[in-house]
Simulated assay, not measured.
Amino acid sequence: MRYFIELAYKGTNYHGWQIQPNAISVQECIQKALSIILRSTIEVSGAGRTDAGVHAEQLFAHFDFPSEINSEETTYKANAVLPDDITIFKIFRVTENAHARFDAENRSYEYRILLGRNPFDIETTWQLINKKLNIEKMNMAAQILLTYTDFQCFSRSNTDVRTYNCKVTNAEWKLNGNSLIFYISADRFLRNMVRAIVGTLIDVGEGKTTIKQFIEIIKSKDRCKAGPSAPALGLFLTNVTYPKSILLNE
């Protein structure tokens, strides 16, 4: 039987989602907790792999178990075992071939910037001091992302992918007081893509890169021409959606 897990985590203390040989990861913690509770070796597959320090307000993973489990009880017990910065919201059954990564239809991220200082947000926002940003131009550049599909210029260079094509369906900046948030949604994302986009759009906002140059960067497919990656700590995976067909009517 296949089960989906809906979870969230603060990524500060982890070397990303994916299991690492010499560093702690979120995937490792989830697998250990479920293996203890279910008294069996459990392997989980996530909807994607966030980098070290990146957070997730909503992420899904799946695992297989040979018999039916009490989802509420398993969720409660797993949360008692997990560290406080990882939370399982629920566990639910899905169709036999449902896949947390390959069946995801849309993913949404937020990149959170604080235009100032706040000691309580130092692990979850990129704090920019005395930066003058032209947010209107940043939004003009962000809208250009919706007109392209090849984003090799924003991809980590040593990644192994078959295609650099992504369909971006939303990309916009919103300012609320001194809180500046970049919202972006797509069918898939490349490694480091959002952070590279944010860093490049900040260059646009500072006047270091023009709108014309931003277009040329996308067309170049060259990561070296794009701006520096924004720090991991401001990035949140906020939503992953799936077709209703993978759900079981119980």
Results as ranks from 00 to 15, higher is better:
K32G: 02
D222A: 11
D203F: 07
S220F: 14
T169N: 03
M193Q: 14
G205N: 10
I42Y: 04
F214I: 10
F92L: 05
I5P: 05
V198R: 13
A56H: 06
Q27L: 02
I37M: 12
L247E: 09
R101E: 00
R191Y: 14
W126Q: 13
R223H: 08
T50N: 02
H62F: 10
E57L: 15
A171R: 04
I181C: 13
T241G: 07
T200V: 12
L128A: 02
G234Y: 01
K167Q: 14
I91K: 03
K10C: 00
Q213G: 02
Y14H: 06
M140Y: 05
R39W: 00
R195H: 09
K132A: 08
E68W: 09
F89H: 14
A100W: 05
R2A: 01
A186V: 01
F63T: 09
R191A: 05
P21Q: 07
E96A: 13
F92Q: 08
G199Y: 06
T149L: 02
L38D: 11
P119N: 03
L145E: 01
I184K: 07
K225S: 06
T95Y: 00
V44R: 05
W126R: 02
S155E: 04
I36M: 09
N70F: 10
K221W: 01
I246H: 08
K90Y: 04
L235A: 04
I181A: 05
M1V: 10
R156G: 14
V161D: 05
